[in-house]
Simulated assay, not measured.
Amino acid sequence: MKLLWQPNQGKQANTTLTDMSSRVYVSSTAFPSGANVPHASMKQIRASLNEQAGMLILYLVVMQLIGPAIAAILITLMQAMHHQSVSLGAAFGELSSSSYVGLTNLICVASAFVFWILTHKSQIADTSSDGVFHRSERRMPPLVFIGAVCLLFTCQSLSTIYNIGFSWVVQQLNLEVVSNSERIQAASGTVAMLVYASLFGPIVEEIIFRGVIMKGLQRYGKVFAIVTSSAMFGFFHSDVSQGLFAFSGGLLLGYIASEYSIFWSILLHIVNNMVISNIDSVIFSALPEEAQFWTNLGFLVLGIVLGVLVLYLARVRIKNFITANHAYKGVYASWASFWFVVFIIIQLLVTAMEFSPVSS
């Protein structure tokens, strides 16, 4: 889950919002749903991906510039109602405090989400297979849902192992990192942050990435759409710690949304943020310190074992899905689209801002 309030994060695109959103949806409906389009349509694929990435940049601009301004105004009004005199400038300084960071993130994501709805209302309201909330005729088998939960647990385990190695490398380079996940953890005790991280955030992110972006690209191949939207989801978090998990988890959620509907991917996202990501901390708090290491190790091993088992049992299903929904050769060259590259560069620069030399 991305912590949304980070000053000076957004960069503004020079395309009008209405024109861009309408072209994205028009280009996404140019071919029958699920079809692999001919190689001659690479120009359309680049244009579609280009505009999806451009809209995501504008979403970040609203989230990082307009959202904080609205939050500061609301904090000023709230404090005035309690007969506390505070300037607007002082309210901006309170946005990243542990008392207000959860509320700030809720306001930022809500502001940007309103923008996203207004610029994608046609696709959101569409009841066809290209629509965000289209329900698949396939029923969700209980074993598939349980397997998906297990794989999310595996993603958490792999992310933890990666973070251990990454932390060691950072220490060897005499650097320190203040990541989004650490900021979220610091404010996790507030009701607003709980609502944002466990409920509202997952719903919004699924509608954006698995609903609009993935659905808008899936006529060029479902596998291409899942991988591309997952890559954008990973970079969107602009966090070394969360990015890898967001990408791997995005692959799973993309498959679930594609095969069974976005409602199931939303539910799994909520389960992950509300339950799976908090299991270790809940259990650790009840254990003596000397037992925590072995408990953590046991969870990591269990996550890997579950992942290997689920992937082995589902190997035929996975192979058949990839075979039936692969994109034609060379389609990933569309990742060279200008705004897609700009989006990645912006997020990499924001990620680099997390690093600083260790203070002596």
Results as ranks from 00 to 15, higher is better:
302 L>V: 01
144 V>T: 10
199 L>P: 02
65 L>Q: 09
186 A>M: 14
339 W>Y: 13
131 G>F: 08
166 F>H: 07
216 G>A: 06
346 I>Q: 14
325 N>R: 01
354 E>F: 08
251 L>N: 03
184 I>P: 00
243 G>V: 06
221 G>Y: 05
144 V>M: 06
1 M>V: 13
85 S>D: 12
312 Y>E: 05
123 Q>R: 13
206 E>S: 10
327 A>S: 15
221 G>E: 04
92 F>D: 02
24 V>Q: 03
239 D>A: 04
262 I>P: 04
260 Y>L: 04
274 M>E: 09
323 T>F: 05
154 T>M: 15
161 I>K: 08
69 A>N: 09
28 S>K: 02
301 V>W: 12
260 Y>V: 05
357 P>Q: 06
137 E>C: 00
83 H>I: 05
196 Y>D: 06
298 G>E: 12
214 M>S: 11
244 L>M: 14
47 A>P: 09
211 G>L: 13
235 F>C: 10
165 G>W: 00
340 F>N: 11
91 A>G: 01
277 S>R: 05
246 A>P: 12
269 H>E: 01
91 A>T: 13
222 K>N: 06
86 V>S: 14
129 S>Y: 03
36 N>D: 12
111 S>Y: 05
303 G>T: 05
151 L>A: 03
120 H>N: 15
2 K>F: 06
70 I>V: 15
295 T>A: 10
192 A>C: 11
358 V>R: 14
17 L>R: 04
15 T>F: 07
128 S>H: 01
181 S>H: 11
234 G>R: 10
237 H>L: 06
174 N>Q: 15
297 L>G: 03
227 V>G: 02
335 W>Y: 08
257 A>Y: 04
